[in-house]
Every structure is written in structure tokens, then in C-alpha cells.
Write a protein that binds this DNA or RNA. Structure first.
Lengths: 189, 189
DNA sequence: CTGATTTCTTGATATAGGTCAAGTGGCCTT
DNA sequence: AAGGCCACTTGACCTATATCAAGAAATCAG
């Protein structure tokens, strides 16, 4: 089993034959550190799986950037509203390190259900899982302090803390880099 | 076309025959003001469509309640993680007014795809749409002040402001009722 | 290795929004 | 219509977090 198939298996309940078929639609793609996987306003006509590297999803506002999410090895990446509903992308997606991806283009994405009968149901479950995760994230803003949100992210995503400038992590948590610095210092004592 | 079919049509791309089939799975349900549609920890074995009334989705914390969402006429309601992944419900869902629903139980929900070939794909699109809406909501916490979040909700959901105690709306926006009061006064001047 | 950038930390100060407490007003219930 | 809730508003004060500015540390380019 290839590495991609191995990862697909961890997300989706497919047999070996379906795994092979699904994996065959994905092609290698490389994004150099600092380059863009996607830019705001463009059509996001692809869905990718991150093999190595790290991507930052963010929006340019008038006076600052807001980081919506940071995605690393083992995660999928796309702008769902653009891919599925053919809207212009809301996000910029930039590589924070050299990044290797497996990418399926929209044409193949749209016909994968013709080859794998369970595809739509399986994808539905996957998106539902993403939805539930986002519900938890909304809840964290309603119910937690900055320090609690920081701790939860740190416990669940230690890997990004070594690789990503603090300012981006702070933005994604809805706080400033100074606040993270102070939380860290407080927790040393 | 029944009222339910009419609403289903507004969300889903089904022909009349499919609409009739889907609608036939939903049965009327009534929840009296103050009563619960769902309680934390129980299994949510149903999905409902709100015909009239209003429901509050919330969590009991040690020292307070946090309102995650308020759902009214024309919206679907369930705890997705419980319905789809058979987890215990995270939310309490309580009627803030007498509420009439059309409800499909989990047994029927699980077999609806056997009758409507496009069901899984259609439901996938619907859940994807919900996901995109939640992404926007997360973004509002990352990028907006309390006043901006209040204004956006007010523009988009005027109907709930007449019917729902301010404290619940405030909680769902991640602020206190006093803050909403002050925002309102400021905007009068 | 060195200078230039970028990132991180720290301190001083500012502010959005929270907390607490009192008062007002609406609207059920009897 | 009187009493009793609730919900809402307002004021005084407080606190978590932001902002601004400077310096320290890390990283990068040559």
C-alpha cells in the first residue's frame, strides 16, 4: 500500500480496490516555501492532501492579515466553498515550508463518484466530521479564555508549534502574539 | 406541494417524485415552550425541520450556560455528531416557544439513501454548505468586534430578535447581555 | 562568520468588554 | 389592579487582552 493509500484508509472506510482507485486520481504537486497554493478570488479547482510541509490559510484585511487555519502533514486542504459551489476563493493558502501534496483536480473530483459507489456517502461522513470539529471551535470562542484556547491547541497540534511563526498561531486563536508570549511565561513559573 | 416539500425544494435539488418520497419520511412532532427536544448525553436519534417555533442549542457549564445556536422556522435541527457518529449528544436543545417540527428518526434517516439515489450526494452538499457557514462564523470571532458581530447577526436574523431573550443571543455571539444593551444604546444616538 | 531581517519577549499603558448591583418596565397570574 | 417575575438597561468599577515601543534572540543571506 502506498503512503497515500495508507492515509486515505485512516480517514475513509474503503476496501483495497477502492483505495487504489481513489489514490490513482491524486497527482503529486509541490509548493515552495513562501509560494501560494491558492489566492483569494481565484477559483479553487482542486483538493489536496498534504504529504509533507505546512500551509497557512488566511485573509488579507485592510490593515492586517487574519489566519483562519494552519494545515500540516496528513490533512486535506482546499477552499470548500470554491471547490464545491464554484465561488471565488475566500482564502489565501500559502506554504510556510516546502510542501509536497497529492492533488486531485476538480474534473476528476466531480467524477470520482462514478467509479466508487460509496464515494458520496463516504465524503459526506468526512465533511460531517469536519463540521463537528468546527462546531467545537466555535464553542471554544464562546466558552474559553485565551489561555484555555491556547492550551487546547497546544495539546492537539504540538507539531505546528515548532514550525510556525507565533503570530500566525496567535491570529488563528483570536489573540495577539504578545498574549501567547505572556501565557507561555506564566506557565513556566 | 405540501409546505414541507416546498421547504425541502428550497434546500435540495430533487424532482417532485423524490420530494414526495423524502417528505413522506418526516412525521409531525410538537415540543412545548420550555420543554426539551434533546438533552446532553442522550443519543440524538432524529433529524428535524422546524415548521414553526424556536429552539435554543446550549451547553451547561459549571457556572453558566453557553448558547451555541438558535434555530427557527425553516431550519433543520439535530446534533450531527450524535446522529451520524452515534456519540452522546453534546447539546441541550430546548424550545423557547411552542414548536412544531417534521421529524425523521434515525432508522429512516439511515435508509433514505436506499430510496433516493441522489440522497447522499445531496446531503453532502447540504452539510458542506453548513460547514462553509460555520467557517464564516469562526472568521467572525477572529476578525470582528462585539459590535460588528452583533450587527451581522441582526441583519441576517432579525426574526430571532423579537422572540428570544437577549441573554441567549448575547451568549451565542460570545458577549454579555449588558454589552448588547450598550451597543444598542450607542446605535440610537 | 557577520550583518540584516524577522521573530519573540517584555514593560508600560490603553481599552473593549466583563462583572456586580441597582433600578425600570413589561407582562403574567390571580 | 396588585404582586411577582423576568428581561432589559444603566452606572461604577474591574480585568483580560490589545497596543505600542524597545530590546533580545533566532534565522537567513551572502
Amino acid at each position: 500500500m502506498t503512503e497515500l493509500e495508507h492515509y486515505l484508509q485512516s480517514y475513509f472506510d474503503f476496501d483495497q480496490s477502492d483505495l487504489t482507485t481513489v489514490a490513482s486520481f491524486f497527482k503529486p504537486e509541490f509548493v515552495k516555501k513562501g509560494d501560494y497554493y491558492l489566492k483569494t478570488g481565484k477559483s479553487c479547482n482542486k483538493l489536496s492532501f498534504i504529504q509533507t510541509g505546512i500551509l497557512r490559510v488566511y485573509v488579507n484585511l485592510e490593515d492586517r492579515e487574519v489566519t483562519q487555519w494552519i494545515s500540516s502533514k496528513g490533512y486535506f486542504i482546499t477552499d470548500l466553498s470554491s471547490l464545491i459551489f464554484s465561488k471565488p476563493s475566500r482564502w489565501n493558502i500559502q506554504a510556510l515550508a516546502d510542501t509536497t501534496l497529492y492533488t486531485i483536480d476538480k474534473a476528476d473530483y466531480d467524477r470520482i463518484g462514478d467509479f466508487i459507489p460509496k464515494w458520496h456517502e463516504t465524503e459526506k461522513l468526512f465533511i460531517a466530521h469536519c463540521f463537528v470539529t468546527l462546531e467545537e471551535r466555535v464553542f471554544s470562542f464562546l466558552s474559553m479564555t485565551a489561555e484555555q484556547r491556547y492550551n487546547v491547541l497546544f495539546e492537539n497540534s504540538r507539531e505546528i508549534f515548532n514550525q510556525v511563526p507565533l503570530q500566525y498561531i496567535a491570529s488563528m486563536l483570536g489573540m495577539t502574539p504578545e498574549t501567547i508570549s505572556r501565557i507561555r511565561r506564566k506557565q513556566l513559573i
